[in-house]
Protein backbone atom coordinates (compact mmCIF):
# COMPACT_ATOMS: atom_id res chain seq x y z
CA UNK A 1 0.00 0.00 0.00
CA UNK A 2 2.72 2.44 1.01
CA UNK A 3 4.52 1.54 -2.21
CA UNK A 4 1.48 2.57 -4.23
CA UNK A 5 1.34 5.89 -2.44
CA UNK A 6 5.08 6.40 -2.93
CA UNK A 7 4.87 5.69 -6.67
CA UNK A 8 1.93 8.01 -7.14
CA UNK A 9 3.71 10.79 -5.27
CA UNK A 10 6.79 10.34 -7.47
CA UNK A 11 4.58 10.39 -10.58
CA UNK A 12 2.85 13.60 -9.56
CA UNK A 13 6.10 15.33 -8.66
CA UNK A 14 7.74 14.33 -11.94
CA UNK A 15 4.70 15.54 -13.91
CA UNK A 16 4.84 18.88 -12.15
CA UNK A 17 8.54 19.35 -12.73
CA UNK A 18 8.13 18.38 -16.39
CA UNK A 19 5.45 21.04 -16.76
CA UNK A 20 7.58 23.78 -15.25
CA UNK A 21 10.54 22.74 -17.42
CA UNK A 22 8.47 23.06 -20.58
CA UNK A 23 7.58 26.60 -19.58
CA UNK A 24 11.07 27.63 -18.57
CA UNK A 25 12.80 26.52 -21.76
CA UNK A 26 12.52 29.51 -24.08
CA UNK A 27 13.77 32.16 -21.70
CA UNK A 28 15.86 30.29 -19.18
CA UNK A 29 19.34 31.78 -19.28
CA UNK A 30 21.05 28.80 -17.70
CA UNK A 31 19.90 26.33 -20.35
CA UNK A 32 22.40 27.26 -23.01
CA UNK A 33 26.01 26.60 -22.13
CA UNK A 34 27.89 29.19 -24.10
CA UNK A 35 29.49 31.12 -21.27
CA UNK A 36 32.69 32.79 -22.46
CA UNK A 37 35.99 33.30 -20.71
CA UNK A 38 37.60 36.72 -20.25
CA UNK A 39 39.93 36.40 -23.24
CA UNK A 40 37.15 35.46 -25.69
CA UNK A 41 35.04 38.42 -24.59
CA UNK A 42 37.99 40.85 -24.67
CA UNK A 43 38.97 39.73 -28.18
CA UNK A 44 35.38 40.06 -29.42
CA UNK A 45 35.05 43.52 -27.84
CA UNK A 46 38.37 44.69 -29.28
CA UNK A 47 37.30 43.53 -32.74
CA UNK A 48 34.12 45.64 -32.55
CA UNK A 49 36.18 48.67 -31.43
CA UNK A 50 38.68 48.22 -34.27
CA UNK A 51 35.83 47.86 -36.81
CA UNK A 52 34.47 51.21 -35.62
CA UNK A 53 37.88 52.89 -36.00
CA UNK A 54 39.00 53.09 -32.38
CA UNK A 55 42.79 53.22 -32.33
CA UNK A 56 44.38 49.99 -31.04
CA UNK A 57 40.88 48.76 -30.15
CA UNK A 58 40.77 50.96 -27.05
CA UNK A 59 37.69 52.98 -26.08
CA UNK A 60 37.94 56.68 -25.24
CA UNK A 61 38.97 57.86 -21.79
CA UNK A 62 35.96 59.77 -20.54
CA UNK A 63 36.37 61.87 -17.41
CA UNK A 64 33.64 61.40 -14.82
CA UNK A 65 33.45 65.09 -13.94
CA UNK A 66 29.76 65.57 -13.19
CA UNK A 67 29.01 65.89 -9.51
CA UNK A 68 25.34 64.92 -9.44
CA UNK A 69 25.34 61.92 -11.72
CA UNK A 70 27.70 59.18 -12.83
CA UNK A 71 28.16 56.91 -15.86
CA UNK A 72 26.80 54.04 -13.77
CA UNK A 73 25.46 53.12 -10.37
CA UNK A 74 26.16 49.73 -8.82
CA UNK A 75 23.48 48.50 -6.40
CA UNK A 76 24.42 45.10 -5.04
CA UNK A 77 25.06 43.14 -8.22
CA UNK A 78 22.93 45.34 -10.47
CA UNK A 79 24.52 47.93 -12.78
CA UNK A 80 22.33 50.82 -13.93
CA UNK A 81 24.05 52.95 -16.57
CA UNK A 82 23.31 56.56 -17.40
CA UNK A 83 22.41 57.43 -20.98
CA UNK A 84 25.38 56.54 -23.16
CA UNK A 85 26.07 58.80 -26.13
CA UNK A 86 27.19 57.47 -29.50
CA UNK A 87 30.72 58.91 -29.41
CA UNK A 88 32.94 58.49 -32.46
CA UNK A 89 36.66 57.71 -32.01
CA UNK A 90 37.34 61.49 -32.20
CA UNK A 91 34.95 62.13 -29.30
CA UNK A 92 32.18 63.83 -31.30
CA UNK A 93 28.59 62.61 -31.41
CA UNK A 94 26.06 62.28 -34.24
CA UNK A 95 23.57 65.16 -34.00
CA UNK A 96 20.18 65.81 -35.59
CA UNK A 97 16.84 64.19 -36.25
CA UNK A 98 16.10 61.12 -38.34
CA UNK A 99 15.14 61.11 -41.21
CA UNK A 100 15.50 64.87 -41.91
CA UNK A 101 19.05 65.52 -40.61
CA UNK A 102 20.61 62.07 -40.32
CA UNK A 103 20.13 58.88 -42.30
CA UNK A 104 19.28 55.32 -41.34
CA UNK A 105 22.88 54.32 -42.15
CA UNK A 106 24.22 57.04 -39.82
CA UNK A 107 22.07 55.56 -37.06
CA UNK A 108 23.35 52.03 -37.67
CA UNK A 109 26.88 53.28 -36.88
CA UNK A 110 25.61 55.39 -33.96
CA UNK A 111 23.90 52.33 -32.49
CA UNK A 112 27.17 50.36 -32.55
CA UNK A 113 29.12 53.35 -31.17
CA UNK A 114 26.74 53.77 -28.25
CA UNK A 115 26.86 50.02 -27.71
CA UNK A 116 30.66 49.82 -27.35
CA UNK A 117 30.40 52.90 -25.11
CA UNK A 118 27.90 51.12 -22.89
CA UNK A 119 30.11 48.03 -22.74
CA UNK A 120 32.96 50.32 -21.63
CA UNK A 121 30.75 51.64 -18.82
CA UNK A 122 29.81 48.20 -17.51
CA UNK A 123 33.44 47.11 -17.91
CA UNK A 124 34.41 49.87 -15.48
CA UNK A 125 31.59 48.81 -13.16
CA UNK A 126 32.92 45.23 -13.30
CA UNK A 127 36.41 46.37 -12.31
CA UNK A 128 37.75 46.00 -15.86
CA UNK A 129 36.78 42.33 -16.23
CA UNK A 130 33.95 41.80 -18.74
CA UNK A 131 33.71 38.10 -17.87
CA UNK A 132 32.23 39.19 -14.53
CA UNK A 133 29.08 40.33 -16.36
CA UNK A 134 26.40 37.75 -15.67
CA UNK A 135 23.55 39.08 -17.79
CA UNK A 136 22.56 42.05 -19.92
CA UNK A 137 18.99 42.38 -18.64
CA UNK A 138 17.48 45.34 -20.45
CA UNK A 139 18.49 47.97 -23.01
CA UNK A 140 16.54 51.15 -23.74
CA UNK A 141 17.16 52.74 -27.11
CA UNK A 142 16.36 56.43 -27.54
CA UNK A 143 16.30 57.98 -31.01
CA UNK A 144 15.68 61.61 -31.94
CA UNK A 145 13.06 61.21 -34.67
CA UNK A 146 10.18 62.56 -36.74
CA UNK A 147 6.78 60.88 -36.20
CA UNK A 148 6.81 59.28 -39.67
CA UNK A 149 10.00 57.37 -38.82
CA UNK A 150 9.31 53.79 -37.63
CA UNK A 151 12.49 51.76 -38.32
CA UNK A 152 13.76 51.74 -34.73
CA UNK A 153 13.96 47.97 -34.62
CA UNK A 154 16.60 47.83 -37.38
CA UNK A 155 18.75 50.42 -35.57
CA UNK A 156 18.35 48.64 -32.22
CA UNK A 157 19.29 45.34 -33.85
CA UNK A 158 22.78 46.71 -34.58
CA UNK A 159 23.47 46.98 -30.86
CA UNK A 160 21.47 43.93 -29.83
CA UNK A 161 23.49 41.70 -32.17
CA UNK A 162 26.75 43.38 -31.09
CA UNK A 163 25.98 42.51 -27.46
CA UNK A 164 25.47 38.86 -28.42
CA UNK A 165 28.65 38.89 -30.57
CA UNK A 166 30.68 40.10 -27.58
CA UNK A 167 29.05 38.27 -24.67
CA UNK A 168 27.47 35.24 -26.37
CA UNK A 169 23.79 34.37 -26.41
CA UNK A 170 23.40 33.39 -22.75
CA UNK A 171 24.82 36.56 -21.23
CA UNK A 172 24.27 39.01 -24.08
CA UNK A 173 20.64 38.47 -25.11
CA UNK A 174 18.30 40.87 -23.39
CA UNK A 175 14.93 42.60 -23.28
CA UNK A 176 14.61 46.03 -24.79
CA UNK A 177 12.49 48.92 -25.81
CA UNK A 178 12.99 51.58 -28.43
CA UNK A 179 11.27 54.95 -28.57
CA UNK A 180 11.42 58.15 -30.58
CA UNK A 181 12.31 61.36 -28.73
CA UNK A 182 10.81 64.80 -29.36
CA UNK A 183 14.09 66.42 -28.27
CA UNK A 184 17.34 65.26 -26.75
CA UNK A 185 20.16 66.80 -24.74
CA UNK A 186 22.78 68.42 -27.05
CA UNK A 187 20.54 67.43 -29.99
CA UNK A 188 22.23 64.00 -30.06
CA UNK A 189 20.60 61.56 -32.47
CA UNK A 190 20.95 58.32 -30.56
CA UNK A 191 21.47 57.19 -26.99
CA UNK A 192 20.92 54.10 -24.93
CA UNK A 193 20.99 52.98 -21.35
CA UNK A 194 21.05 49.51 -19.92
CA UNK A 195 20.74 47.35 -16.85
CA UNK A 196 23.21 44.51 -16.34
CA UNK A 197 24.01 42.03 -13.57
CA UNK A 198 27.39 41.08 -12.17
CA UNK A 199 28.17 37.48 -11.26
Amino acid sequence: MTNVIKISVILIVSMLSFQSKAFAQSGDMDNEADYRDKMTIDVAYKKELLDLGFKDGKYLDIADDATSHHPYVLVGKVIHTAEVSALRPDGTALKGRVPTDVSQEDLYVASRLACVGAINVIKNAAGGDLSRIRKIANIRYLTLSEPEYIDYALVSNECSTLMVRVFGQTVGSHTRFAIGLVSSANNESFKLNLIAYLK
Binding site: D28, K135, N157, T175, R176, I195
Partner: peptide, 23 residues
Protein backbone atom coordinates in the same frame (compact mmCIF):
# COMPACT_ATOMS: atom_id res chain seq x y z
CA UNK B 1 0.22 31.73 -27.70
CA UNK B 2 3.30 33.83 -26.92
CA UNK B 3 4.12 35.74 -30.11
CA UNK B 4 7.66 35.64 -31.45
CA UNK B 5 9.82 38.74 -31.01
CA UNK B 6 10.88 40.64 -34.13
CA UNK B 7 14.64 40.61 -33.65
CA UNK B 8 17.76 39.49 -31.81
CA UNK B 9 16.40 39.98 -28.30
CA UNK B 10 14.32 38.18 -25.66
CA UNK B 11 10.63 38.65 -24.80
CA UNK B 12 11.60 38.40 -21.13
CA UNK B 13 14.68 38.01 -18.98
CA UNK B 14 14.70 36.61 -15.45
CA UNK B 15 17.75 37.17 -13.24
CA UNK B 16 17.28 35.65 -9.80
CA UNK B 17 13.88 37.10 -8.90
CA UNK B 18 13.90 40.15 -11.15
CA UNK B 19 11.77 40.01 -14.27
CA UNK B 20 12.42 42.32 -17.22
CA UNK B 21 10.00 42.41 -20.16
CA UNK B 22 10.56 43.79 -23.62
CA UNK B 23 7.88 46.43 -24.18
Amino acid sequence: PLSKVFGPYQPYVVVDKDIYLTS
